[in-house]
Amino acid sequence: LVRYRTISKIPQITLNFVDLKGDPFLASPTSDREIIAPKIKERTHNVTEKVTQVLSLGADVLPEYKLQAPRIHRWTILHYSPFKAVWDWLILLLVIYTAVFTPYSAAFLLKETEEGPPATECGYACQPLAVVDLIVDIMFIVDILINFRTTYVNANEEVVSHPGRIAVHYFKGWFLIDMVAAIPFDLLIFGSGSEELIGLLKTARLLRLVRVARKLDRYSEYGAAVLFLLMCTFALIAHWLACIWYAIGNMEQPHMDSRIGWLHNLGDQIGKPYNSSGLGGPSIKDKYVTALYFTFSSLTSVGFGNVSPNTNSEKIFSICVMLIGSLMYASIFGNVSAIIQRLYSGTARYHTQMLRVREFIRFHQIPNPLRQRLEEYFQHAWSYTNGIDMNAVLKGFPECLQADICLHLNRSLLQHCKPFRGATKGCLRALAMKFKTTHAPPGDTLVHAGDLLTALYFISRGSIEILRGDVVVAILGKNDIFGEPLNLYARPGKSNGDVRALTYCDLHKIHR
């Protein structure tokens, strides 16, 4: 019993810090008490220290592992850092350059016999395009090294910054494609005289377009951006097909006994025919423009016929181009109408809503002055909100995010209106959640004399007048207030005048 009563005193000691020596009952000389009392004092002292730490809000209350900052290894790049964003855009520009100039170089340097010394005699450094290609190869190699040090988000939505895990993730992902696209074939085969082989191998750079397509997928929600990307894709495919079309004609031209190829026909049409040795002929500019003209006309199913396939190889390629053109029509131009419709969806919704308003007016036989006010209010409210119901949009977000959005939407009023000066951010967040926005066209009466005042109004834009009878008592403008002081009276009061809008007004109100 003594032991039980001794232990039962522990909660009292913990909360009230009572010393055991003052209790005459606990001072009985028993061996059990002498053993338990020192333990009680020690526990009391420890609990006292913990309570003191909690009340003082000291940093040592938290466990040590929670006080440590997340460790980022040296030379690790955050995937959302500004440097990584700028670097990704730079790589994107280099990939676009590669997609345009690599097929052009591979096709127009394929057994090209233009006048001038061969590239091997001039030297590697004197070729501007080769120098640019070398810079692109170096940048792609540097990009691989950067990807080995860039964080990523795993399946659990955690940012991984450990170098080993980053390397394994990159090896399992895009490393092989990036490595093949970054191989400097110019340096590996330079001086061997195989410019045709170098041009063909350099087309491996186009593998990076797969990554670019995935990154550009984030802009699919913007109709104008999608339309622009589709047109660029169409032009890029036409450019690639033009390079292939020229390569076919250029390879067949020296081996044909009869002059029936499209390059021969082009030379005869523009007065620059090929001679018996295969030299001469149109310039590279004429060849490229004509090839691009043929691919565009074939892809769009126009086909004027002034550039036509004559050999079997050219006919087979033309059939493939027609098939590609039909697929592009289905996948690209078939979506253009939907994209344009999405661009004008706001206008369509406006006309639909206006039609419903006019049908309501016609069905209920609203008189002319009231009908005009109804239409003007709808037009003004639509121009202010673009038909978007803010309350319906915010309803799907958590309250903390709703408060931040409301604070942002009402920031101008909260910053410049005098009653809100000096208020804490928590108070402003709470008030912003209570605001209701209303609009009024010129001549609209917001409050009639004798109406119950259940709200306090803040003028965000425009001006109003307060009338008693036919006498203008006051004219209020931006950041002015009218209405009933909230919670100042037990019952809502009545208006002693009319409140009429002089201009288009936007008002925020808080109800009782």
Results as ranks from 00 to 15, higher is better:
Ile332Lys: 03
Ile77Asn: 01
Glu375Ser: 04
Ser326Pro: 12
Leu209Lys: 01
Met328Gln: 01
Ser81Asp: 01
Asp88Glu: 05
Ile388His: 10
Cys400Ala: 10
Asn275Lys: 04
Lys436Trp: 05
Arg356Met: 14
Val357Arg: 01
Val95Ala: 01
Arg349Lys: 09
Cys417Gly: 10
Lys425Tyr: 09
His264Ile: 01
Leu78Asp: 05
His73Asp: 05
Tyr124Lys: 01
Gly199Tyr: 03
Tyr344Asn: 08
Tyr377Asp: 12
Arg214Leu: 01
Ile72Asn: 03
Thr102Lys: 05
Leu401Met: 08
Gln372Glu: 13
Asp137Ala: 06
Cys232Gly: 12
Ile388Arg: 04
His408Asn: 03
Ala235Met: 09
Val160Met: 09
Gly334Asn: 01
Val357His: 01
Trp174Ile: 01
Lys434Ala: 08
Pro70Cys: 05
Leu197Thr: 05
Ala403Phe: 01
Asp133Met: 01
Cys232Phe: 09
His169Glu: 08
Ile324Asp: 02
Val226Cys: 12
Glu121Leu: 09
Glu359Ile: 01
Gly223Asn: 04
Thr445Arg: 04
Ser81Lys: 14
Ala125Tyr: 13
Thr424Pro: 09
Pro273Glu: 01
Ala430Phe: 09
Ile340Glu: 01
Tyr384Trp: 08
Glu112Phe: 05
Thr150Pro: 01
Phe140Ser: 01
Ser331Tyr: 09
Leu78Gly: 04
Leu90Gly: 07
Leu176Cys: 13
Leu428Pro: 01
Tyr97Cys: 01
Leu230Ile: 10
Val321Asp: 01
Pro82Glu: 03
Ile77Arg: 01
Lys215Val: 03
Arg208Lys: 06
Asn265Lys: 14
Tyr293Trp: 05
Phe333Pro: 05
Leu263Trp: 01
His408Trp: 04
Ala430Ser: 11
Met256Gln: 15
Met322Tyr: 01
Lys436Gln: 12
Ile340Ser: 03
Ile248Asn: 01
Phe190Trp: 13
Ile146Leu: 07
Thr424Arg: 08
Ile260Cys: 03
Gln353Ala: 09
Ser192Trp: 14
Leu78Pro: 05
Phe294Asn: 01
Pro419Trp: 04
Ile146Cys: 07
Tyr170Gly: 01
Ile361Tyr: 01
His380Lys: 10
Gly123Asn: 15
Tyr124Met: 04
Ser331Val: 12
Arg214Ser: 05
Pro128His: 03
Arg421Gly: 09
Ala348Tyr: 07
Val95Met: 04
Leu176Pro: 08
Lys287Pro: 01
Ala330Asn: 01
Ala247Trp: 11
Leu299Asp: 01
Gln127Asp: 14
Thr424Gly: 13
Ala432Glu: 03
Leu188Val: 13
Pro367Glu: 15
Ser105Asp: 02
Thr113Val: 10
Gln372Arg: 10
Pro442Arg: 06
Asn386Met: 10
